[in-house]
Simulated assay, not measured.
Amino acid sequence: MNSIRILTAEIPMALAGQRLDRALSAVFPDFTRSRLQDWIKGGAAMVDGMVLPPKHRILGGERVVLRAEVESKAAVQGEAIPLAIVYEDASLLVVDKPPGLVVHPAAGHRDGTLQNALLHHAPQLAGLPRGGLVHRIDKDTSGLLMVAKTLEAHKGLVEQLQARTVHREYLALVQGAMTAGGTVDAPIARHPVDRKRFAVREGGRPAVTHFRVVERFPHHTLVRLKLETGRTHQIRVHMAHLRHPLVGDPVYGGRPRPPAGVSPALGAALRGFGRQALHAAALGVVHPETGDYCQWQSPVPEDFAALLAALRAG
């Protein structure tokens, strides 16, 4: 059974010049762009009291009223799953997610997720969108995530994400020897054939990744990456676009094939690393209540550290 939710928002000035459908996908991240396009075309999105086409270029500051028809879902239940809490106060929570833990319930993962764990730890999060989670990382990516504990904090953190002022740094081990750092400024959209993948495509959503070399190995490179945008699979897609896919990435990096000539121990370590070598190592944000800038760090987890040790041993 479906229900109607009336959602209102003001389009941030930072989105001036964007198409209406892209702007609304940033303002209402819980909904896919295709669904928002359908609602816009059907007159369910009023912009300053007017029905406009999806391609309309917004000025920023417009008020949007969205009649969102959503499918009713069973409430997510809290579960006693261990949490690595890095920071917590009355309005903000920062957790260090282990690899292998799904962030949100979805088809095939209705329970046992980070959201289930958060609702057990702080049941009041049930009253917030997505249980207070304002961003996400892939199941097999480890590292830092921030969680809002109040509606005011949620609004403030989402606005910082939209304004691209949240500091997010990742560590990644990529295939091949990179000679220098740089920036990838390449739009990302769903793959034209495989809808579970993403690709660099003209007309996709803007995506910017900055990277620098941290440590070089004969056939691999450890890089630190800073996200300016937060597209799905952004780092994985951008590194594969540079022909330096992440080690252990089955979607964008192909089958694990250790380079010729490596030691048996290193070959076994590379073949046995069963996830993409990606870790959300640093997170910085203006505290939504105090206004102070806060930053947190997370060391690489044991499996990533062991792989680096094997590379250093040669």
Rank of each mutant, 00 (worst) to 15 (best):
A107N: 00
A107H: 06
G108V: 00
G108L: 06
G108Y: 08
H109A: 13
H109I: 06
H109L: 12
R110M: 02
R110A: 05
D111N: 11
G112D: 01
G112V: 10
T113S: 06
L114P: 01
L114N: 03
Q115Y: 03
N116E: 11
A117N: 02
A117L: 10
L118C: 10
L119W: 11
L119S: 13
L119M: 15
H120Q: 13
H121L: 10
A126G: 15
G127V: 03
G127P: 00
R130D: 06
R130G: 02
G132C: 10
G132P: 03
V134I: 13
R136L: 03
R136V: 02
R136F: 07
D138L: 08
D138T: 11
D140E: 15
S142T: 04
L144P: 06
A148C: 10
A148K: 05
K149D: 09
K149M: 05
K149C: 06
T150Q: 06
T150G: 02
T150Y: 04
E152M: 12
E152F: 11
E152C: 11
A153T: 12
A153M: 13
A153S: 14
H154D: 09
K155Y: 13
K155I: 13
G156V: 01
G156R: 10
L157K: 06
L157Q: 09
V158L: 13
Q160E: 04
Q160D: 08
Q160L: 00
L161R: 05
L161Q: 09
R164Y: 15
R164W: 15
R164E: 15
V166D: 06
H167C: 07
H167M: 05
R168L: 12
R168N: 10
R168Q: 13
R168G: 01
E169A: 08
A172G: 14
L173E: 04
L173Q: 00
V174G: 10
Q175Y: 07
G176E: 07
G176Q: 07
G176K: 00
G176Y: 00
G176W: 01
M178H: 01
G182E: 15
G182Y: 14
T183A: 07
D185W: 11
A186L: 10
P187L: 11
I188S: 05
I188D: 04
I188Q: 07
A189Q: 07
R190S: 11
R190T: 12
H191C: 14
H191E: 13
H191M: 14
P192V: 06
P192G: 07
V193Q: 00
V193W: 09
R197F: 14
A199M: 15
A199E: 14
R201M: 15
E202I: 13
G203P: 14
G204A: 09
G204I: 05
A207R: 08
A207D: 00
V208K: 03
V208N: 04
T209Y: 00
T209N: 02
F211P: 01
F211K: 07
F211G: 03
R212A: 14
R212M: 14
V214I: 14
E215G: 08
E215Y: 12
E215I: 10
E215N: 13
R216Q: 14
R216A: 14
R216S: 15
H220E: 03
H220M: 02
T221I: 07
T221Y: 08
V223I: 15
R224F: 05
L225F: 01
K226Y: 10
L227Y: 01
L227C: 01
L227W: 00
L227R: 05
E228C: 04
